[in-house]
Design a protein around this nucleic acid. Structure first.
Lengths: 337, 337
DNA sequence: ATAATGTTTACATGCGTATGCAAAAGTCTA
DNA sequence: TAGACTTTTGCATACGCATGTAAACATTAT
């Protein structure tokens, strides 16, 4: 109950200089003599002074806050990404105001409004689709947005994803090379560009080899739904391989195949996922999957966003990071692996 | 490049009232007539006005920002907790500034300083130990701190954990009732109160039944280390049951037991974990574990913190939420389950 | 009708900092 | 040593809003 605020005024008085001198000492670009710097630092030290970021933001117009919107945290890919994003932004002197978007994207607009109220310098939207009216509003306020792991070509913002199309294709070719002919696909939420692109690449590669999708069910990126999708898919004319739109669902698929349907993986059925989340390498799953290179994705996201924030702002960019296939044990291996 | 800021001034002019009238319309407790409210709202609507949270924070001294410090995000328990915390705080009109603390806690002090620079109203530290000098500093600034899933009795802040001691005891009794006599323990990072309490409760319950810990290794809450701990523990005179300090490690333990050592679970060895993270119920693990009730923990954490923030601040509280044993298939079941 | 009360309003000020401007203090050259 | 620069400094102001104060207004009681 003793909120002793230390202001630059007090430091100035103690140091025997003006408030503006104190300010300049703490402002990178400003001019201050060695002497005053010393005096100010000493005074600041004894008083325990630290510049008030909020006041600084008010006058400078730059809050050094980045808004981060996330929908899912149960899919391990996102916590991982958040950690990396946060670290990278911290390293650049920015901080992260985090917002959970209800998965239904109902309140998304109001969430964004709230974010903007804090005068964020930029926004990263992970796995979230933005209405173009929102995008309009943000860009008119000069707040750049980068979509992380989701793409929307036409609107006014950048995006960073993995190369989902070619990733899907890689999965298809791997399964075909493994000798599979009855290949199923378990889709994610159809509204997601990741889902669409992965499926597109996958199906295109099958077709290119003269193969048709043997079965298709929708799992909505949720484990429960993926389980029922699996049951439906294997009820009649079971496929000999399944590509699942992400690892998170793939775990449910594998559990269902093994423990409910009594199938062996990969002897009876091959499973390939997408993301390469940490659990994919856990031996109980040992999942063959397409890796999203979170590090590069984060790096690009931060680079693009900060470029735009700091005014070196190029045009909107749409980046797709290469996505290698990680071969483990959940899918039959073609010769040569 | 057209950052058209709309201020309360402009709204006031358009509405034909004073700036303070506009402010009062947007300030819950303030008085404003129906007429002016209408005029102001209409003007605000057409201009697209929203109050600037930062300016508001400056003058009111309340930022409605809560700093959240997290160390790990690979253990699923924390993403889950973050999601719940964030939702709960958002529902109360607060927002979350998130900080990743390097696991080594080196830069923790500087992280806290940065947090404080943003004039946060309170701090939640998840799975992080604070130096008492830091605590000093925060409380002198009037910024309450709540430790989440970590306890430190003597210093000046509250904490919310599960009842780790009794949770550990439950695990011990369950294993003993299951007929195990050679019971091992794989510890987490020894600096963590959760680790200490779980082990204490576990060992105490064993002793109470006249049993001694058969083996003990340290896994540091990390999967790699947990795997090597398992190898060491089972190299000679293998136990017939293992209690692992958290689920995250337990998965590595189970994988190592099954796929490296060729042991069957629970026929050859029983495994019990702690946390009940989502993956514990995945059938590949189907882990018997002690549940940390994240919902209640979050609820209590937010309640305590906001009480203190909003001045109804009681004394520091140390809350331990009851932690039930969730019986699944990874440990041999005593009769009656 | 008037006084007494209760509501609503505008004015003015301050939150803590950055920054343009002009004066002051240094630095260098001839 | 004077003049021409360059660097440093203090002053004043502005950022956008909330709030204390006193005046204006509306409502009720007498």
């Amino acid at each position: 109950m003793n909120p002793e605020k230390v202001t630059s005024q007090q430091v100035a008085k103690l140091a025997g200089v003006s408030q503006s001198a104190v300010s300049r000492v703490y402002t990178p670009g400003a001019s201050a003599s060695k002497k005053t710097m010393l005096k100010v630092h000493k005074a600041a030290e004894t008083l325990g002074y630290r510049p008030n970021s909020l006041a600084r933001a008010m006058v400078s117009g730059k809050s050094r806050i980045i808004g981060l919107i996330v929908a899912y945290l149960d899919n391990q890919f996102y916590p991982d990404a958040i950690e990396k994003l946060s670290n990278s932004l911290q390293a650049n002197g920015y901080h992260v105001l985090i917002f959970m978007a209800s998965k239904t994207a109902e309140g998304l607009d109001s969430v964004i409004e709230e974010i903007m109220d804090y005068q964020v310098d930029g926004i990263i939207a992970a796995s979230v689709a933005l209405s173009s009216s929102l995008a309009q509003r943000c860009s008119s306020m000069g707040v750049p947005i980068v979509l992380f792991n989701r793409a929307q070509q036409d609107d006014g913002f950048s995006s960073v994803t993995s190369d989902n199309v070619s990733g899907g294709a890689k999965a298809a070719r791997f399964l075909m090379e493994g000798g599979h002919t009855k290949i199923g696909y378990i889709a994610g939420w159809e509204g997601a560009s990741t889902q669409r692109d992965r499926e597109f690449g996958f199906v295109a590669a099958l077709q290119q080899a003269g193969l048709k999708l043997h079965a298709r069910e929708v799992g909505q990126f949720e484990m429960e739904q993926a389980s029922s999708a699996t049951r439906r898919m294997f009820a009649t004319d079971a496929p000999d391989a399944v590509f699942v739109a992400n690892d998170h669902m793939a775990f449910a698929v594998m559990d269902t195949l093994r423990f409910e349907l009594g199938l062996r993986i990969p002897e009876d059925v091959s499973v390939v996922g997408y993301d390469d989340v940490p659990a994919a390498s856990w031996l109980a799953y040992n999942l063959t999957t397409v890796r999203q290179r979170a590090n590069q994705m984060v790096q690009e996201t931060v680079r693009i966003l900060l470029d735009q924030v700091e005014g070196n702002g190029d045009q909107d960019q749409h980046i797709a990071i290469g996505s290698p296939l990680i071969v483990r044990g959940s899918a039959r291996k073609p010769k040569g692996y």
